[in-house]
Nucleic acid binder design. Structure first.
Lengths: 215, 215
DNA sequence: CTCTGTGAAGGGATTCACAGCG
DNA sequence: CGCTGTGAATCCCTTCACAGAG
C-alpha cells in the first residue's frame, strides 16, 4: 500500500532524525524535517501519516519514537543478507562503503567470474565462485543482490542471482535488466546520472547568462 | 521545457540505440526500444516527440540519425569538465569508472582534504588541494562536480564547488545538500537505495509466500 | 496490415488550505 | 498563535486509443 516514493523518503527522514537526535532534540516539527531533507512540510506529514505515526499538535513528533516507528516499517525482523556480484574497483569500494552503514544490511557474500578471487575475504566479506551462488544464497539467507560488473555481463549476473532466489537487485551496471515481475530492481546508473546533471548544469547556466544579459 | 524524466530516459535510449547500431540495425521501432529499456512504447514515442525527431510510419526510426538527434539535445557543444571532491575508495573507483564512459564528459580535476594527495595523477585525473578549486574550475571550465566524501564533509564540499561556479552536482554522500536554486543536484545514495530494495525484496517475497500458501 | 504522432483520458503524487487542538 | 492531520484541488506523467501514412 505504501508507495515507492514514500518508502524512499522515509529512509531519508530517518537519517535526518538520527542526526537531530544526536544533537539532543527530543521533539521535531514537520517543517524542520522538511528543511533538513529538502522535502515539503506537507509531504513529510503525508508520509508519516502513511506509516500511522501521530505527533502532538503543539510539540511536533517525538524523535526517538518516530525513528523506531519508521524502522518498524522499513526494516525486516532480523538482519538482511546482501550479496555482491562483481569485484572490480567499484565492487570493492561498495563493500567498504556499505560495511560502515546500516548494521541490519550486511554484505555477507561476493561473487566474481575470476576464480582466483574465490576464497578471499574483503572487508569482512567472503568471496565465492559464481557456481556456488545458489548454495551460498540459501545458507546465508540472502535476498538482495548488487550488480557491479561490466554492462555485457550484467544480465547474466542478474539471471544467476534471480535463479538463486534473490527478490531485489541494486544495479550499478549501465544496462537495463530483464527480470521476473516479483524481483524489484533499483538502478544506480552513474553514467546516466552524470549525463543528466551535465545537461541541467548547462541549462541553468544558460538561463543565468540570459537573465543577466537579457534585462 | 523538456521534463526531467524525459531527459533521464533519452540517455537510456541512446545507450540502447548505440548497441543496436553496433548489431547492424539501420532502423528501430518504438516498441523495440521499449522492450530493451523497460519503458512503454507510447512513452518512447512521446519522449522522441519532445526532441522533435520524426520516424517513418512503416520503417520506424533511423538508428544513426536518432542517436545524433538525441546527442544534439543532451550534449553540450564541446567537452564538459567534471570535478571530483573526495579521493577515498569510492572516489577513486568513480574516476576509473567514468573515464571508460562517454568521452564528452571528462573528469579532469580531483580535490581532497588530505594535502598529501595534491599533485598526484590518478587514472589521468590530476589532484589538487581544496584551496585551488576556484582557480582550477575557471581554468578548466568545470561546470559539474561529484561529491564522494563522508556525510559530515558533504555540505562543505558542495559549498566550495558552488562558490567555484559549479552548476550541477552529483552527490554520493549520505547527506541532503543545501544549494542555491540555480544548482541542479542529482542524488546517488547507495545506502538509501539499498534500504529501498531490501524493503521491496521482503515485501515481494512475503507476497510470493502468501500466494502459494493462501489459495 | 503495422507503424508513427498525438489529442484526450486516466492515475498518482504533491500541494493547498483549513478544521481541530493545545 | 503555530502545529498536526487531512479532504479537496492541482499538477504532472503516463497510457489509451485512434487518425493518418505507407
Amino acid at each position: 500500500m505504501t508507495s515507492d516514493k514514500t518508502i524512499g523518503r522515509l529512509g531519508l527522514y530517518r537519517r535526518c532524525l538520527n542526526r537531530l537526535q544526536g544533537e539532543g532534540r527530543p521533539f521535531v516539527y514537520s517543517h524542520q524535517i522538511a528543511a533538513e531533507t529538502g522535502v515539503s512540510a506537507a509531504q513529510v506529514r503525508r508520509d508519516l501519516m502513511a506509516i500511522g505515526y501521530s505527533g502532538s499538535p503543539n510539540r511536533g513528533y517525538q524523535t526517538t519514537e518516530l525513528i523506531k516507528s519508521i524502522g518498524e516499517h522499513l526494516d525486516g525482523p532480523g538482519e538482511t543478507g546482501v550479496a555482491l556480484f562483481g569485484l572490480g574497483n567499484l565492487g570493492r569500494a561498495i563493500i567498504a562503503y556499505v560495511s560502515r552503514q546500516r548494521p541490519n544490511l550486511a554484505v555477507t557474500a561476493a561473487f566474481d567470474k575470476d576464480p582466483a578471487k574465490a576464497g578471499r575475504v574483503i572487508q569482512g566479506c567472503r568471496c565465492y565462485a559464481v557456481e556456488e551462488i545458489a548454495q551460498v544464497a540459501r545458507e546465508k539467507n540472502i535476498k538482495v543482490g548488487m550488480i557491479a560488473v561490466p554492462a555485457y555481463a550484467a544480465q547474466d549476473a542478474a539471471d544467476r542471482l534471480v535463479a538463486a532466489g534473490i527478490c531485489g537487485l541494486l544495479n550499478f551496471a549501465p544496462h537495463s535488466l530483464k527480470v521476473p515481475a516479483h524481483v524489484h530492481v533499483e538502478e544506480l546508473d552513474l553514467t546516466l546520472s552524470l549525463e543528466k546533471v551535465a545537461f541541467f548544469a548547462r541549462r541553468s547556466q544558460a538561463e543565468k547568462q540570459s537573465n543577466s544579459g537579457g534585462q
